[in-house]
Each structure stands twice: as C-alpha cells, then as structure tokens.
Simulated assay, not measured.
Amino acid sequence: MNAVTWDQRERVIALLDAASADPAVRAVVITGTGRGFCAGADLRGAPASGGERVAGDVARTIRRGAQRLVTAVLDCEKPVLAAVNGTAAGLGVHLALACDLVLAAESARFIEVFVRRGLVPDGGGAYLLTRLVGPQRAKELMFFGDALDAAGAHRMGLVNRVVADAELAATAKEWAERLAAAPTRALALTKHLVNASLDGDRESALAAEAWAQEINMTTLDANEGVAAFVERRTPKYRGL
C-alpha cells in the first residue's frame, strides 16, 4: 500500500528538489503502484531511537520527516499533480492534498486515520485540510477518521476531478502534458502566490503579486507569450 519508509521519503524529497532545479522537468506526477496511493508513514520501518526518549524527540522527528515531505511538495517550483489511484490514509492524504492539482480514481478513498491510532495528524494535515474545507469539516474528518470516497472528496473540494480507474493514468498524463507545455516560471510564481494567500494580509499579498510580476517579466516565456499574442500565433513556451 506504498507506506512511506524513511528511505523512500528522502528519495522523493530529493527528486522534488532536483525537479525544481532542472529546466528539463516541466511537471511532476505523484501516484502509487498497486492498489493503493499511500497508506501513510511506515511506522514499523522507523529506525530505533537508540536510547531513552527525551522531550523534543517526537517534534524533531515530525519536523524532519512528515513535515519535510509535505513541504517539499508545497515548495517544488514545478506544478505537482497527484493521481490518487486507491486508498490515501494518514500522511498519504496530506501528501495528496499538498499537490497543486488532485485527480482521483473512482476507487480512491481518503482516510484521516490518526484518531483510530490515538494520534494527532501530522504532515501539515490540520493546516492543509482546514484551508481546503474549513474548520468544521476538517474536524469532522479528523475527529471520526471515517473513509471518504472519491465522490465525497470531490464535493468537499479536496480533489479537482474524479475519473474511472482505467482512465486515471491517461488523464494524469494529459494534465501533466498541459502543465509541461505552460510557462513554467509563471506557474511557479502563481503557485507561490496562491499558497501564501491564506497566510498573510492584503497588503502583503499585493506586494508579493507585484514582486512576482516583476520577476516573471524577465523570463523568456513571458516575452514569448506577449509576442505570440501580438503576432496572433500559438505561443511555444520553453520553461525559461
């Protein structure tokens, strides 16, 4: 069920960081193999603490682990698409919700499983979920830990689109190709503005928008977009 091991987490974080720096990478897709998207953290595979637990150990583990993984998705400078192919539980839910766009197969399920284990949500779950569905629905999902099917997740605004299981890969490919053909730096700056919009005040948001516009107008893609409009042709973006 693709539970996240320590090694897998570090590999995904490294791949996302490399994607940000590589001009040849124009979009990222996160999906699972087999019958599940991600069952959460692999608690059985966590390394031993090597001694008596002291105050701060758990918080440090969360910061270095689940929070780093989710933050790597949020901070990736390329658009990140989740193709949820089955059950997403615990950290798996938050990994999907951190993505910029979420496609869900009809068989997908989203489970805030933490309460079933007597645990508090990690991986930025309360931060992400509350911003997507509001505090009352977020608490309902997290307090009860009930499975939410794909249709329900779509109604709540957690996913962009639900497709038949057999169509998930093709739809994800189509969306990724559209994202890859877009002006990459403009998407990165737009992502930054949207992600930061709920955390700041209006003055800061407008200042950030002006800053993003200033930076974007130095890109080749911005010049190409304007030139193509003037010349009445389809723009050819290169991600530069």
Rank of each mutant, 00 (worst) to 15 (best):
T71N: 14
V194D: 14
G123Y: 01
V73N: 02
E231Q: 15
G92C: 01
S49P: 02
L16I: 05
L132N: 03
P121L: 09
G65Y: 13
C76R: 11
A55I: 08
R117P: 04
K173N: 11
K236G: 11
F114T: 01
G50S: 02
A151M: 07
A24P: 02
W175K: 05
G45H: 10
A205E: 01
G157W: 13
K78E: 05
V133C: 05
G40M: 06
E10C: 00
F114E: 12
K191D: 00
A59C: 04
I30Q: 02
R11F: 11
G92R: 01
R137Q: 11
F144G: 03
A98H: 10
S107E: 09
H94A: 00
P79Q: 07
G225Q: 09
V4H: 01
N2L: 02
A19L: 06
L69R: 04
M156L: 15
L95P: 06
A212L: 04
G225R: 04
L43F: 15
A180F: 10
L148I: 07
K78N: 09
A147C: 02
D22T: 12
N195F: 11
T190L: 06
K236N: 04
A151G: 06
A182W: 07
L240N: 13
V12N: 00
R109F: 00
A82Y: 02
T184G: 11
A19F: 14
Q67L: 04
G51A: 02
R64E: 15
L74C: 07
N85A: 01
A186N: 03
Y237L: 13
L74V: 08
A98N: 08
L81N: 05
A151F: 09
L119E: 15
L95G: 05
A108P: 09
A46S: 12
D57N: 12
C38G: 01
A228L: 09
D146K: 04
A208R: 08
V162H: 08
G86Q: 08
V133G: 03
L240Y: 15
R60D: 07
